[in-house]
Simulated scan of single mutants.
Amino acid sequence: MQDTPARGEPAQGGLAPADGPASEDAALSSGGGAAPRAARSRSGRAGAWAELLRLPALFTVPGDALAGAAAAGVRPGPRTLLAIGSSLCLYEAGMALNDWADRAEDAVERPHRPLPSGRIRPAAALTAAGALTGAGLALAAGAGRPALAVAAPLAATVWAYDLALKHTPAGPAAMAAARGLDLLLGAAATGGGTRAALPSAALLGSHTLAVTAVSRRETTGGSALAPLAALATTGVLTRLVTHRRTRLPAGRRAAAAPGLPGSSPAARPPGAAGAVATALGAAYAATAARPYFHATLNPSPPLTQRAVGGGIRATVPLQAALAARSGATATSLLVAALAPAGRMFARRAGMRKVSIT
């Protein structure tokens, strides 16, 4: 998994602890004493875990379950919240497991990361991955058997990717499968089935496949093919979510039928939801296409990293567009609001970077 620091900023994103004994001695001589040093230590540990778990990236996760619920034609409810909680836990398990699996490689290529820098012990990261996986499966079980039936292969895909598939040709496909399963988890938890959500899962998985393929050259650059393919994928996905109307789920068809309860103009997907889907599809394209284009022209590591960051950020408007495409206007707007919330959190947390794998 690659970190993409903002231009001109330190790779640690402002989360690194004080640099060596000299800074500690300066703090003590200023009258701070042991209490400020302990506070800095606690802050450093919290910052290290925030960096390990890529907390700002969590804002790209709830949209999976919400888009899945929209595709199933059911309004989000308590079981959707359990699915979101399960998704968040499994996502964070993957983040911790990733750095544990890559600790030897990171010691050479990315020594600033929490494990090779010694700020987090490898055993603690592995324990966190196991605990978060268990919590994710427990939350899915609380949402019902259909949800657990999706969460179990999702958890297996996460562990298989980090431990075996990441550096193989199957890596991007495994990452895409994980995102698709995450969307299906929301559909299974909310509506009890996944069939209606399969097209949306395929579209989201295609986007993830393209971004992951680009991320494999983040540190080395040199390949224009992956960002070019991602740019083409973005164009196709934008076309699909803004121009092609899928058959609405049964519940939404009934709500949109003239003369039936709930058939207000706001409830008719071809109108309001169609316009929202078009706007969100345009936002998706604007977020992803430009950095992909730049990386195609100049596949250097910095521009490739920016392309990956743009692809990650584009996940949220794509999720929102998929929800609107299914006729769930309110849900799509809720998902879209996660994008600025994530950017605000990243700024306040001092983590001006994005991560994907």
Rank of each mutant, 00 (worst) to 15 (best):
A275L: 12
G8L: 05
A129F: 06
A151M: 05
M351H: 13
A96N: 01
P10Q: 14
R113E: 05
Q12G: 14
A285W: 05
A187F: 09
G281W: 01
G274N: 10
D162T: 06
V241E: 00
L322R: 13
A275F: 06
A273S: 15
T212E: 04
P21T: 15
A256T: 11
S215D: 11
Q319E: 10
G221S: 07
R306K: 11
A256D: 10
G171A: 07
G271Y: 10
A125D: 13
G85L: 04
G310I: 09
T315L: 09
S200L: 12
A266Y: 14
D3H: 15
L303I: 14
I84R: 03
I312Y: 10
V61G: 00
Q319N: 12
A197P: 14
R42P: 07
A170H: 08
G8F: 06
R179W: 08
L338Y: 02
A141D: 05
G180H: 10
L154F: 13
A83N: 07
A295F: 07
V214Y: 02
P269G: 10
A339K: 13
Y91I: 01
Q305E: 14
G63E: 04
A202W: 01
A34F: 15
A65T: 05
T331D: 07
G20L: 12
R239P: 00
L137P: 01
P56Q: 02
A201K: 05
A149Q: 11
P261I: 13
A341R: 03
A341W: 07
H294C: 11
A176Q: 08
G350L: 03
L115E: 00
A26T: 12
I356K: 12
P270S: 06
P76T: 09
A38P: 04
A349W: 06
P270I: 06
T80P: 03
G134D: 01
A257F: 04
Y161D: 00
D106L: 05
F59I: 07
Y292S: 02
L165R: 06
W159M: 06
T287Y: 04
D99A: 08
P153M: 10
A346H: 05
E9P: 00
H112E: 08
I84D: 04
R79E: 12
G350C: 02
A267F: 02
A156P: 14
A129I: 08
A174C: 14
A277G: 11
V354T: 15
A93N: 07
A131P: 02
S326H: 08
A34L: 15
P153R: 15
A328P: 01
A321F: 11
P111A: 06
P265R: 07
T287N: 04
A337S: 15
L82C: 12
T242W: 00
A257T: 15
A232Q: 13
R268F: 10
V308D: 09
T80C: 09
R244T: 06
G191S: 11
L88W: 11
L165H: 03
R179Y: 11
D25F: 14
V214T: 00
L260N: 10
A93L: 02
